[in-house]
Design a protein around this nucleic acid. Sequence first.
DNA 1: CATGAATGAGTGTTCATTCAT
DNA 2: GATGAATGAACACTCATTCAT
Lengths: 195, 195, 195, 195
Amino acid sequence: MARNKGAKGQESRARLLAAAAEQFAGLGFYETKISSIVAQAGLTQPSFYLYFESKEAVFEELVGHFRSRLRELVASSRLESGLQPGEVNARVLGVLETLFRFFTEDPHLTRIGLFQAPQAGSIKAELAALIRDNLLEEQRSGYFRSTLDMDVVAQCFIGTLERLTFAYLSEGAGNPEQLAAQVVELFMRGMLPEK
Amino acid sequence: MARNKGAKGQESRARLLAAAAEQFAGLGFYETKISSIVAQAGLTQPSFYLYFESKEAVFEELVGHFRSRLRELVASSRLESGLQPGEVNARVLGVLETLFRFFTEDPHLTRIGLFQAPQAGSIKAELAALIRDNLLEEQRSGYFRSTLDMDVVAQCFIGTLERLTFAYLSEGAGNPEQLAAQVVELFMRGMLPEK
Amino acid sequence: MARNKGAKGQESRARLLAAAAEQFAGLGFYETKISSIVAQAGLTQPSFYLYFESKEAVFEELVGHFRSRLRELVASSRLESGLQPGEVNARVLGVLETLFRFFTEDPHLTRIGLFQAPQAGSIKAELAALIRDNLLEEQRSGYFRSTLDMDVVAQCFIGTLERLTFAYLSEGAGNPEQLAAQVVELFMRGMLPEK
Amino acid sequence: MARNKGAKGQESRARLLAAAAEQFAGLGFYETKISSIVAQAGLTQPSFYLYFESKEAVFEELVGHFRSRLRELVASSRLESGLQPGEVNARVLGVLETLFRFFTEDPHLTRIGLFQAPQAGSIKAELAALIRDNLLEEQRSGYFRSTLDMDVVAQCFIGTLERLTFAYLSEGAGNPEQLAAQVVELFMRGMLPEK
DNA sequence: CATGAATGAGTGTTCATTCAT
DNA sequence: GATGAATGAACACTCATTCAT
């Protein structure tokens, strides 16, 4: 009941997953009915259970995808130590761009992971912790003002990312790079140490 | 159907509303059952319909409360013109404190209005627009850097407020004034004009 | 709980009864709600139970009224024996007119008694039996063709009366006398003995 | 939602429809419960909704059946012109027999269509209109007395048919042909032109 | 690999009726 | 004589899930 092998089966499974993602994102968990998922995927209800254990299970699978890909992303953008002071700006810009791009890339998944999932809170908390750790390391290296509570700053970043993603990117307005630049402009003067 | 007069009736209605707010906030709309709302309120199911048209109706009433109180709050915190340059900081600080306090004051309602409601998006959009208008006026008066896109800035504020509220305040950690101060410290240097 | 005496009480009871008759006639038993009856009567629900035992009870009271008044009517129109052959026509005409008038007089009650009541069938059967008895006596007296099955004829009269009442009279079209005349014209040639 | 294809499905649907017809006819719309319909059909409640949209929908389907079959019947019994005067009697007899037979054929449906349905009034009105049109054509051809108001006559036929159907046929007493003959004997002398 | 048919369990809602005042 | 408030009992309907094929 976990992974069906044949080519046609994988195709069906993928269609179901895509339909589920779209509907969960648009309607939320409860307003999304198995009947409408399978309809969109061109299958019947029992087929659904050929590929997934339950409605909860698909939802969890989607949330899981989102969460683990997000984790990888942030992990891989860990600061290499030995950063030059002049590069801090670019570094933060890069991280923001990467996150904006990630959120824009699969909007259904993003919407599910950041809004629809009951775990949305803990996902954001986890993300915040990762970002905070990055920031703390940089702060210790003297790149950032020592008076800042990096816990708070990380939360501000998350909130900002989240809001801008939904206000602009999911509406198809603006683009990741431009938004990231504006955020950097807004935040950095408050973060860099006084000259 | 929403105007029962006697004192006892108003009491019952209030109990139902409070129970509904608590459960909606904690469990969401769908996992909240009328049966458990009335149980918490010490009544039976039919009584619920003495005071509310439907499950949707109570939910909407709560969201409506939140939305309109939020509206009033922001409207009443419009900037009086004739602000001294030195006061800008304090002004923004004040607005942030007010909003933090408002969000903390009735956590159930806040959770419903900002997360559980399908209209959460439009509520935040509305709030963003109001804040943006405030900011724009101040920008025109020269209090803020002219290169800033106040639309984006407003969204950053909303995201930040929202995130901090849920990360700290609803956990009972931190306090509105302290958080507001940190946000001001973080944002202001990026917002005030260069000397 | 049966008969409240005071003037005001009688007034209230009458208003309830009238409202009930109107609504039962128009909407039927099930679509008529106690709440709407009392609303129309300008009272509250508990007041209803001051005057009637139950919803069924009011309905029965109305049906009972109809049934007993109809009974009296037919009973009182029994043929005096010693009728002259030439008067038969006028006699039947008179009975029809009387019944048409009765049905038109209180349309709500008529609609309830002939259509809405579960006993409608037995009411019509009873009426048919009474009419049949009248007809039989006249047949025995030689006023009517001896080949006619007066049981059937009576049913034809009932059906005709009922249909014409609802097609014309309750629409405010036509009048009892004229309709009665037409029925007599249609039926009598088939009923009177061949010359 | 009304087109399930397999043989087993059609069987179930038919059983539900039959059970519904029987219970609606016997108990009326409101006293008939979905639970008892499905019980009689040997199914469970959700299965009902596999075949019908709602309780109202089955009822309407039954009424619709009745109405359209009745329409066809009357339409197909339109008078061929070129009728011989001597055949008028037989013609009317034939129509009456046909209608009596139709009403007797599916007693549940008849009871629903003529009594239980809120549209019963309009169904009878429609039937009356169709019969009146037939009669009018014959009247124009000189087969019937020109003084008769065929609108009224048609209503008399309907009432008579209805009453006799329920008084005799649904009790299993009498038979269509015999009743039709008696009606013809009663009405025709009043309808045929004076010699 | 897929489907037609069926179901268990649950939930919102309605309404006649009553209690206490 | 009347009412505000409350309730018991029921019922239609939904939906995720599962057999049997």
